[in-house]
Amino acid sequence: MTDSDDATADPVRPPVALTIAGSDSGGGAGIQADLKTMTAHGVFGTSVVTATTAQNTRGVVDVSPLPTDHVERQYDAVVEDFDVGAVKTGMLATADTIEVVTDRLRGTGMASGTEPSGASGFDGPVVVDPVLVAETGDRLLPPAAEDAYADLIAAATLVTPNADEASVLTGREVDDVDSAVAAARDLLETGADAALVTGGHLDGRSPSDDSVVDVFLAADDAAPTHVVSPRIDTAATHGSGCALSSAIAARLARGEPLEAAVEAVARELSDAIRGAYDVGDGPGAVNPTRLDR
């Protein structure tokens, strides 16, 4: 009898991570990219959907936020049953949703009046990808929603803005490595344990045009870490922020130290972009199966 003929169950027990984000009908970003990335890291991905979108490789047609009480119930259903090792947040869509997610993670009072499952809140690492600015540079959230991020960032183990998002969150212009470091310090003052300001949007303003410099700074670090990786000449970067933040969350769920997880993922992302999916009529999406190989 071969192994394939053996009818004995042989289940596996992988680490579990949770993504709280919007759905991308085009499959390249959001919940879909997060779950693919977690699977690529050997982590079982669970999800809380905050909004649905009608989009493809050419752009976003429509966004429909889900009711906050349904967001709460999704979260409760997951944490009541799964041993979640790490959480990442992506597109949260509205100020109310940001506040509800923050309250759930911190275990504080709910906007809808329902009680959180665990009164003490989530006690594992939380990676916040503040989805504020589209690839086009357009602001995705109204000012009230942007302001609501302050409390969520204060609850974060790591916040991962790109340069444009760091500018929105800190009110300072982030256009080179020095200003990215300053923005990272501002985010630590907001309360985050660590910040990673990604350098992909700093075109032509890195030490050389053929490199990307991501700036990592933790609260107990005297100096930042600069993670340098090659700049890939492609427009197929859809989902790069989602893949990066969910890959870090997956590694944290596996028990890896934060700085080691950040440095590994920041460098591996170049390969995910280099091997992007060539699908649809617009720019393709990053390939999360190229991570953690």
Rank of each mutant, 00 (worst) to 15 (best):
V168P: 02
N56M: 03
D103Y: 11
A163S: 11
P143E: 12
A9P: 02
A54N: 07
F122Y: 14
Y75E: 01
R104C: 00
P143M: 14
V79Q: 00
P161A: 09
E256G: 06
L66K: 05
L158G: 08
S120K: 14
G284E: 00
R231P: 03
A223G: 07
T8G: 00
A285I: 04
T39Q: 14
I153N: 12
E146P: 05
G191F: 07
A253D: 09
S25V: 09
G85V: 00
F82R: 07
A9V: 04
D233Y: 14
L291H: 03
R73C: 10
P230C: 13
T136R: 15
G200D: 02
F122V: 04
A148L: 05
A243W: 06
D175P: 08
L291K: 02
G275R: 14
G284V: 01
S245H: 12
V126W: 11
R58K: 11
L18C: 02
Y75W: 04
V262A: 13
A272C: 06
G200N: 03
V133R: 09
D278M: 04
G137S: 14
D34Y: 01
Y149V: 08
G255N: 11
D3Q: 00
S112R: 07
A272D: 03
S229L: 11
C242T: 15
V131W: 11
A194P: 02
D10E: 05
T160W: 09
G26I: 04
L252S: 10
M91R: 01
D178K: 12
D123Q: 15
G113T: 11
V12S: 05
P288W: 10
L202T: 01
D3P: 00
L217F: 03
G282P: 00
G241C: 13
L92G: 01
L258I: 14
A166L: 11
E99Y: 03
P125S: 12
V71T: 01
A276M: 08
D3V: 00
R185H: 14
K36L: 06
E99C: 06
A148M: 06
S206K: 02
N162W: 05
L66A: 08
A276R: 09
A40N: 01
V12M: 04
